[in-house]
Nucleic acid binder design. Sequence first.
DNA 1: GAAATAACATGATAAAAATCATATTTCGGA
DNA 2: TCCGAAATATGATTTTTATCATGTTATTTC
Lengths: 143, 143
Amino acid sequence: MLSNSSKYALKAVLYLANKTDESHKLMVKDLSEPTQVPKAYLAKLLQALSKQNIISATKGPKGGYYLTKENKENPVYSVIEVIDGNQRLEACVLGIDECNAQHPCPLHEYVNPTRTALLSTLKKMTIAELSLDLSNGASFLSR
Amino acid sequence: MLSNSSKYALKAVLYLANKTDESHKLMVKDLSEPTQVPKAYLAKLLQALSKQNIISATKGPKGGYYLTKENKENPVYSVIEVIDGNQRLEACVLGIDECNAQHPCPLHEYVNPTRTALLSTLKKMTIAELSLDLSNGASFLSR
DNA sequence: GAAATAACATGATAAAAATCATATTTCGGA
DNA sequence: TCCGAAATATGATTTTTATCATGTTATTTC
Ligand code: FES
Ligand code: FES
């Protein structure tokens, strides 16, 4: 469904969402532990997200990664899109050339409705919204 | 969602479903073309399916792959299970240790209901059933 | 303005998935 | 019974993904 990279990126971004802002930042090593993502690998992912302005960063001492208010309003899907591209979730599950109702694969009718529903959720829901019940202990990023 | 291998295997099995039986068999090269799967790769997949009795095969001239009535009654999921194992579809989408409602990841509530619904469909529906509208041109395996 | 600290850029290595190749076994037909 | 056709077993190669490592640049602090 999602690549390992996307899973890692999402976990890190969700963690950032309710732990950081312009004046509270986190370094990769502080993200690596709670998200269970290897440090060097996570670093590379965060750089990619930063370059696409999905997350914010400042260099040097007292620097680190953080989410601005604007960052937090981005759709959850934007993280996935940067890392995996959009084909991964939108292409035909059986890999035929294009996925549409006029020329469906045998699984289309069973997977497409729920998949497009999920996709639309991911595109509408913001990082902030998704991270909400993480902050009140209703959901988790590891274990 | 599915590995390339599973997609290929599913396409081949569905093709076999309404083209073959004990007295009408197909060789890998006759499967490779309509399913758009590289011949040597498909051969290896079919061998794995055959070894697990998901499909049937006979060697030698006039031989080939085919589905018996029993084969056709297998759940669609059995193909996926043999090729991908069951973790791929059942594990947590964010990769946390186990997926359950007592200790959910932030995406759990959005993906789990539809995913378990799909899973249950795949486990209940037979190969024969899924291949049905393939035979009347209502679904397709390529293009 | 020098030193320390953090992200950034880039590339190297490792592991897994996908793909290809080839020799061996089994079976049907001449 | 011998020959050819097919699956089977096994392994090699290629490509992609995941992971690690290291030097460079920006920024704060002294
Ligand atoms: S055509 Fe296969 S999922 Fe839509
Ligand atoms: S816990 Fe993540 S999908 Fe269920």
